[in-house]
């Protein structure tokens, strides 16, 4: 189907390139959706704060790495001091590790201060609580690290990969433009998913996690502490948020809009099902590829910017025909 005056093969390669780029963007959506699924499966909570957690994790990482003094401008405003940094720059690895520690601490506090007091409440109440949590964390992150846009650099390669461009040029006569960061993101996401599934299959804690996700009462009866599992699953979600935060932060700077990637995770979840890890992955990829291809083929006909709404429309279509998502369990009303 040669369109817009392009040759058949050019159309094919352009579309393929768009699809590949979409695949990479989809990985990001998958990552955020994964955080949602983990918490939803284990506790039935739809964690509205997942996106803000990614933002907060990225902010904290930048802050720690650059030796920023937390709450510096609050302290300065109150006491008239001029604090700003400790004057060090930490190696990325150490900074990531420390940030992970902060996310675990966050998980513990969420369990202590919020979840523990809302046991057996309606899902809608828990959902509202996570909305509150999102607003709190957003403001808290601002207070702690300041609200200006920050550059995040943990040493990930960036920019168009010349190797791929020249190789594909040689093979197909068409050089593909693929961002190296996108490739890294895809690899990291794959590693994350593999290690998560190994963890849940082969460790005692992973088994306990699956048990809780399946049946709370039964899990209790075999000696599993729900509180521990909640801390664990929020920690893992915090870790996933950190990974997503690093990737997006590196790509487009650490700023408020980072928390909005959560909005893209929503259609991913509708597609993949709220309880399925493979669903989150596949759903993210479908939406990533779908929106790029749609923009490529249909965008020019409707004046572009289809990426803003394509995902939601696709999700709506899915809601009509397969409300449980691609991989979700079939909802059968017993009568």
């Amino acid at each position: 189907m040669p369109i817009w005056g392009l040759s058949m093969s050019d159309t094919f390669f352009f579309a393929l390139e768009a699809a590949l780029n979409g695949l990479m963007a989809g990985v990001m959506y998958s990552l955020v959706a994964l955080g949602f699924v983990l918490i939803y499966k284990a506790s039935g909570i739809f964690n509205y704060a997942q996106g803000v957690m990614a933002l907060f994790a990225a902010l904290t990482l930048v802050g720690i790495q650059n030796g920023q003094i937390p709450f510096a401008h609050v302290i300065n405003a109150t006491f008239g001091t001029h604090l700003s940094t400790f004057g060090w720059t930490l190696p990325s690895f150490l900074a990531i590790l420390l940030t992970l520690g902060v996310m675990v601490l966050f998980a513990i506090l969420v369990e202590r201060l919020v979840l523990r007091h809302l046991v057996n409440q309606e899902p809608i109440i828990l959902f509202m609580a996570t909305i509150g949590l999102a607003f709190f964390l957003e403001g808290f992150g601002d207070l702690m690290w300041g609200s200006e846009i920050k550059k995040l650099d943990v040493g990930l390669p960036q920019g168009i990969s010349e190797t791929i461009e020249s190789l594909t040029e040689k093979w197909f006569g068409y050089g593909f433009f693929i961002d190296r960061l996108d490739i890294i993101a895809a690899l990291v996401a794959a590693a994350l998913v593999i290690s998560l599934s190994l963890f849940s299959k082969y460790t005692k804690q992973g088994r306990a996690l699956r048990a809780v996700a399946d049946d709370h009462q039964a899990a209790l009866s075999v000696g599993i502490s729900l509180r521990f599992i909640w801390v664990l699953v929020w920690s893992i979600a915090g870790f996933v948020a950190l990974v997503a935060g690093i990737m997006w932060g590196t790509k487009s700077g650490v700023q408020f809009s980072l928390s909005l990637i959560a909005l893209k995770a929503l259609p991913v979840l509708m597609l993949g099902g709220f309880t399925s890890i493979p669903g989150a992955i596949v759903g993210g990829l479908i939406i990533g590829v779908g929106e790029k291809l749609f923009e490529f083929f249909v965008g020019p006909l409707v004046g572009g910017a289809t990426e803003n709404w394509f995902a939601y429309v696709l999700a709506l279509v899915f809601l009509v025909f397969r409300p449980q998502g691609l991989f979700g369990e079939k909802i059968i009303e017993r009568v």
Binding site: F199, T203, K204, Q205, R207, A208, R210, A211, V222, G223, I224
Partner: peptide
């Protein structure tokens, strides 16, 4: 197997 979860010693 999950019934044995408390009998499992090794941690992560």
């Amino acid at each position: 197997m999950t019934g044995r979860v408390t009998k499992m010693k090794s941690n992560m």
